[in-house]
């Protein structure tokens, strides 16, 4: 588990640096893709264990808070939003969505 979290920390650090420095030059439909957000959503939705999504939301949100200017000026805004998303999406997926990916053997 520790190894996976360290992997997450490094992965998101690389993604946020690419997002704020490199991908600025490559707009898609006049928008810069939020790589960290995409990664958090992907991990939350496609990993069966909840701690994966929570860790990704915590790490990704923390980096977004550091490297971006929040609209409401509150440090922690992105972390809290992503965490809420992570918890809520897991609840919705477990309660209301039945797809083979989440079926326990």
């Amino acid at each position: 588990m520790t190894k996976k979290i360290i992997f997450c920390i490094i992965l998101f650090y690389i993604l946020i640096l690419i997002q704020t420095s490199f991908s600025v030059y490559f707009k898609v439909l006049d928008l810069i893709p939020n790589l960290v957000l995409i990664a958090v959503v992907f991990i939350t939705l496609f990993t069966p264990q909840q701690w994966w999504g929570v860790s990704a939301a915590l790490i990704g949100g923390f980096y977004l808070d550091i490297f971006s200017l929040s609209n409401i000026g509150f440090f922690g805004f992105y972390t809290l939003v992503l965490l809420l998303f992570s918890f809520l999406s897991k609840i919705i997926l477990q309660k209301y969505v039945r797809i083979p990916l989440f079926k326990r053997i």
Binding site: T20, I32, N34, F67, S68, L69, N71
Partner: peptide
């Protein structure tokens, strides 16, 4: 050295 994701602030 950097640009914010909201695109309207830079570093």
């Amino acid at each position: 050295i950097g640009k914010d994701i909201s695109q309207d602030s830079i570093l």
